[in-house]
Design a protein around this nucleic acid. Structure first.
Lengths: 146, 146
DNA sequence: AATTTTTATTATGCATGCATAATAAAAATC
DNA sequence: GATTTTTATTATGCATGCATAATAAAAATT
């Protein structure tokens, strides 16, 4: 049956988490993706634009629209690197730092709830299997190459 | 660190699977979401429109646009229930049945790859933890209710 | 029977991930 | 030094999940 496959578990569970996170973020006029981006920006030294996507486990280009919105909302600043006119350093504003703290709370409340509920040996296995699945995908042996 | 949280594992892994699935579906001019919808439609008797979303672990209304596209592409038919003018039965066309088989292959190739790679006791734990996390989310004790 | 409520469904605006294309600047090559 | 290639980034079209609103038909209530 459909609901006994691994992809179904991954997808439906992730969507449930995403919905919950978006509800929480919405209480402060934000979104889950914005919160995740905030968490990936170094509050001290900033973070190069291009490294944000990969840090979040996604494509490098996928954030451009979100970053634009975040700048308009006053969460981040963009500074050109004077030594390399191509690269842009994303930094947090004070408001960005504040919202980052909120995102951290949302994430850690969920994370702690999980870690308080699941025995640590099971959690270790859970994490281990995730890594094995990611390896499987990276190795690309699942489908015909063409 | 960000990449040590459960949400990060869920999200990044799911996104990697989704990307892979979309690449596969793209080879036949389809998409992952269309494939998932096809898999949730009973090829014999059809499936009521509203039960599709929940079957896929998502909101009931979230599929309307995808179903419209699927009808335009000749994958599905929509029949009004003569006994209840509100409900619509989604059925598969021959082309829909054919594409459903393809989706099944894509899903099972991944599923089998995972199940061939991970020892079954670990996989059992993996699945068990997923269910525990879903319960946690359903019980809504993680965030303040307001 | 007329009105209200509920249920099933579709429509639409927003956010966002990806693919691809467009820019622009640095690096490499000629 | 001029040209080509590579690298960093932004822009844009498509697909899609959600929230909300709009329809429409059945069921419940008056």
């Amino acid at each position: 049956m459909r609901d006994l496959t691994i992809d179904y578990l991954l997808r439906s569970t992730w969507m449930a988490v995403a919905k919950m996170y978006n509800e929480e973020a919405g209480k402060k006029g934000s979104t889950m993706s914005t919160g995740f981006a905030l968490l990936s920006i170094d509050p001290e030294n900033g973070t190069p634009s291009t490294s944000l996507g990969p840090k979040m486990g996604m494509e490098a280009t996928s954030l451009s629209r979100t970053l634009k919105t975040m700048e308009e909302k006053g969460l981040i600043t963009r500074k050109k690197n004077p030594e390399d006119g191509r690269s842009v350093l994303i930094g947090l504003t004070d408001f960005g730092v504040e919202m980052r703290e909120f995102s951290k709370e949302v994430v850690f409340k969920f994370d702690n709830a999980v870690k308080d509920t699941i025995p640590s040996d099971k959690l270790d296995t859970f994490i281990e299997v995730f890594h094995a699945i990611n390896d499987l995908i990276s190795n690309k042996k699942i489908y015909n190459s063409k």
